[in-house]
Simulated assay, not measured.
Amino acid sequence: MSTRALIVDPSAPEHIGFGTLPEPVAGPGQVLIEVSHASLNYADLNNARNGRIPAGAPVGLDAAGIVLQAAADGSGPAAGSRVVLFADGAFAERVAVDTSAVAEVPDGVDPAQAAALPTAGLAALRSLRAAHTGPGKRVLVTGASGGVGRYAVRLASRAGAHVIASVGSLARGDGLAEAGADEVVVGLDDIREPVDIVVETVGGPHLVTAWRLLAPGGNLQSVGWTSGASAVFPPYATVGPPKTLTSYVNEFAAADDLAELVRLVADGGLVPEIGWRGSWERFAEAADALRSRRVAGKAVFDLPSHR
Rank of each mutant, 00 (worst) to 15 (best):
M1A: 15
T3F: 06
A5D: 01
A5K: 00
L6G: 01
P10E: 13
E14G: 07
H15L: 13
G17P: 06
G17C: 12
G17Q: 10
G17A: 14
G19A: 15
T20F: 09
T20S: 13
L21V: 08
E23T: 10
P24T: 03
P28Y: 09
Q30A: 11
V35G: 03
V35D: 00
H37Q: 12
A38G: 11
L40T: 01
A43M: 09
A43H: 07
A43N: 07
A43L: 12
L45E: 07
R49M: 14
N50H: 11
G51S: 10
R52N: 08
P54S: 13
A57G: 09
A57W: 09
V59R: 03
D62N: 13
A63C: 13
I66K: 07
I66N: 03
V67K: 01
V67R: 00
G76N: 02
P77Q: 07
P77D: 03
R82W: 09
R82T: 14
V83N: 03
V83T: 03
V84M: 11
F91Y: 13
A92V: 04
A92Q: 04
V95W: 00
V95C: 04
A96D: 03
D98M: 04
T99R: 05
T99M: 04
V102G: 00
V102M: 02
A103Y: 00
V109G: 00
D110W: 05
A112I: 08
A114L: 05
A115S: 10
A116V: 09
P118W: 04
A120N: 02
A120W: 00
L122P: 01
L128R: 03
G136H: 10
V141H: 01
A144I: 04
G147H: 05
G147P: 02
R150M: 08
A156D: 05
R158T: 08
V163S: 04
V163A: 05
A165G: 07
V167N: 00
L170V: 14
R172T: 02
D174N: 13
G175I: 06
E178K: 10
A179Q: 06
D182R: 12
E183K: 06
V185W: 03
V186P: 02
V186S: 05
D189Q: 14
R192L: 12
G204H: 05
H206W: 15
L207N: 05
V208F: 06
T209G: 06
L213I: 00
L213A: 01
L214V: 06
A215H: 03
P216S: 09
G217F: 07
S222W: 07
G224Y: 01
G228P: 08
A231Y: 06
Y236M: 14
A237E: 11
A237W: 10
A237V: 13
P241C: 12
T246Q: 14
T246P: 04
T246L: 14
T246V: 15
S247P: 11
F252S: 10
D256H: 11
L258M: 07
R263I: 11
R263K: 14
V271M: 15
P272G: 07
R277N: 08
S279Q: 13
S279I: 14
S279L: 10
S279M: 12
E281R: 08
E281I: 09
A284I: 11
A286H: 02
A287K: 07
L290P: 02
L290R: 01
V295K: 00
V300I: 13
D302E: 15
L303P: 03
L303A: 06
S305N: 10
